[in-house]
Design a protein around this nucleic acid. Structure first.
Lengths: 154, 154
DNA sequence: TGGGGCACCATGGGCGTCAACGGGAATGAT
DNA sequence: ATCATTCCCGTTGACGCCCATGGTGCCCCA
């Protein structure tokens, strides 16, 4: 398998390092990523982490914009400025910088979540809360759909 | 990687010097920039810093303007008159002049932000505020565009 | 089927290197 | 003479490299 799947929670040590789950590392290697590139997710307190192809995908998207309009500037600001290289050390660990902590609220533990072509880093409690929210939204969606069909009360 | 990516905050010392982040310096060297050229960003309180290609970028922007209109004249004034060379000393530091402080509000610390082909210098608090604005605009952009399903990193 | 051994992974910590930073001294400009 | 600029050196703290330990699951063999 060459995609990021499943999730795991690892602890940050006294030096601020955390092990990237072994399974994810093998995916990184299999896809030939040199360095990992992570950027702050737009609408959730998480880091989106992937290879340099993640970056290239954004850049090809930006190439379609007029470089002198604000949108292109915003995109560049977000992709280039709101991201950071996350170098794996020889044991497959990355250091959790303040840059990451600020956006995610991560302090002592990191929840890694596979997302296919990339993975995410969350503060475990926030991930849990987010998961509950998503679940609720999906549930409401379904209830509304079936309610409209049957005309039943909620 | 030969592009300016990620960000860092460095302190200004008693002599008014600040270290350019090591990663940025290696990019400068790799791209073969002799001197760094910095100019006041048009719509934000930041310095745009890069090699001579930065000048070309602005000049191509001016080429799109009618040379008889005031806009072109204003732009030329900005690009050619409102810029400054920023020489790196032996330790990779530059001096933060009043010219820079006036436009950016920088006093004690400088936030360096990678922007791909160039980088920016910000007063850290202002950068934070600007980042929040950008984030908001991009979020709106995405919400407007998403009739279809979209992952959080797309 | 149970047990020993092996491999892998998460975690902790020692240590060397380098970047950021502070400051002294020489040089140059006004 | 005074101030700003540049060179050079030392300090410090963060980070990368390396090794050790303990836990867990797997496999092989008795």
């Amino acid at each position: 398998m060459d995609r990021f799947l499943s999730s795991a929670i690892n602890r940050i040590d006294a030096k601020g390092r955390v092990s990237v789950p072994g399974h994810f590392r093998s995916v990184v290697q299999k896809r030939g990523f040199g360095d990992l590139y992570g950027l702050r997710a737009l609408d959730v307190p998480a880091m989106d982490v992937g290879g340099t192809d993640l970056l290239e995908r954004y850049e090809s998207r930006m190439a379609n914009e007029d470089p002198f309009l604000q949108t292109a500037d915003d995109m560049s600001f977000f992709v280039h400025g709101d991201g950071a290289f996350m170098k794996l050390d020889q044991d497959g660990r990355i250091t959790v910088s303040d840059f990451i902590r600020e956006h995610t609220g991560i302090t002592a533990e990191v929840a890694f979540v596979g997302r296919g072509l990339f993975f995410q880093m969350w503060e475990p409690e926030r991930l849990k809360a987010h998961g509950a929210q998503v679940r609720e939204r999906l549930l409401k969606l379904r209830q509304r759909a079936s309610g409209a069909a049957a005309g039943s009360a909620e």
